[in-house]
Amino acid sequence: MSDEHSHVDDTRSAGQGHGHAAPGEQEADAKANVGKAVGIYATGLLLAGILTAASFWAAGSHAIFGPAVPAALIALAVAQMGVHLVFFLHITTGPDNTNNVLALAFGVLIVALVLVGSLWIMRHLDHNLMPMSSVMDMQR
């Protein structure tokens, strides 16, 4: 009986029924239309390609003020991750995606805490520690 149930559920098209979409699942109209479904991936590939090319260009050229290059690279990377999430993983802002977006937001929060926290703490530790050579001098 439970097998039959899951079979009925799985043949149901996306966006109907429970008002939820599985992560990675396309919208119903894109599912029915091969051209549209492929077009979504092609759009994502094009945008990601442009952003990648821009990243490599920004790192190699001197057109951007030197100290601003890392900021530009991070901005481009965040944009490209967004493109991947929307066009490849189909995480959208639609109401059927609320659970997926909330989980993603929590993940981003933890990632940010780990990254910023580590860098912050280690920079202060590094700054406050005595250089190794003076430690050696004191031990003589």
Binding site: S6, R12, H20
Partner: peptide
């Protein structure tokens, strides 16, 4: 929710 959604969400 359908198993299809529960499984994909868990993997997410």
């Amino acid at each position: 929710a359908p198993k299809r959604i529960v499984v994909a969400y868990g993997f997410w």
